[in-house]
Design a binder for these strands. Structure first.
Length: 224
DNA sequence: GCATTAAGTGGCC
DNA sequence: GGCCACTTAATGC
């Protein structure tokens, strides 16, 4: 079975020319859950395209506290901060939250591809713009809204990205995030996540599946 | 079985 | 909402 690069995320639509060039230059690899892809400050050798799974890019302080700077889902490309400019070193640490299937592209090959394939570069630009919007939205959320609202918002955004809409209108998030994962992303303590999750469940915004996975109700009108 | 990790709770600030 | 202490459940070698 030969690996093929799927039309996923910003890569679609993917022309046959783009596909063959990328497949020739990159490689596929699977990482187990919790494995570290790279550390902040290491020489940047490769870019990653997520085919399946979830990756957290995080910053860490002296006392070990983490802040998940970005969460990458299938179709995302990273690291994208400083892409094509000052990309000498990885800007953050990256860890697989779930087991992941990734397409890995060496830095020089990626730059060459963006140079020789203008259409690919335009698609990348649109992707970067979306990521920029996401970051701004998240930053203002952090300053303007309560932790409970941010948690609900986070679950909804995640559900819209990787969730499955069910017939009853609920969105099923098919992967399990630990309380710590969520806490790192929202910048709050895992105990708070646990409590807020109970609160959201009792308010009927969230439901729990048997296997610890979550269901979210997405009604913009009833947004707390 | 024993150690580790995740989840949940109560209390105090 | 953070932090600490403690309990319980789940997972791993």
């Amino acid at each position: 079975m030969i690996d093929r690069l799927p039309e996923l995320g910003w890569l679609q639509p993917l022309s046959e020319k783009e596909r063959t060039q990328l497949e020739k230059e990159g490689r596929f690899r699977t990482y187990p859950s919790k494995s570290v892809l790279f550390f902040q400050g290491q020489p940047l050798s490769d870019y990653f395209f997520i085919l399946d799974g979830l990756v957290s890019a995080y910053q860490q302080n002296e006392s070990g506290k983490r802040l998940s700077v970005s969460l990458f889902t299938p179709g995302d490309f990273f690291p994208h901060v400083g892409l094509l400019t000052d990309a000498g070193a990885y800007p953050a640490n990256a860890e697989a939250i779930t087991s992941c299937r990734l397409f890995i592209l060496p830095k020089e090959k990626a730059w060459a591809a963006f140079e020789t394939l203008p259409a690919l570069r335009r698609k990348l630009t649109r992707f970067l713009i979306r990521k920029n919007h996401e970051l701004m939205q998240r930053y203002s959320d952090a300053l303007l809204h309560s932790a409970a609202d941010r948690l609900l918002n986070f679950l909804r955004q995640l559900a819209l990205k990787i969730g499955r809409r069910r017939a009853d209108g609920w969105y099923a998030i098919g992967i399990h995030l630990t309380g710590q994962n969520i806490a790192d992303y929202l910048g709050i303590a895992p105990e708070t996540v646990s409590r807020l999750l109970h609160q959201l469940v009792s308010e009927r915004f969230v439901r729990r599946e048997e296997d610890r996975k979550l269901l979210v109700k997405i009604d913009p009108q009833k947004g707390r």
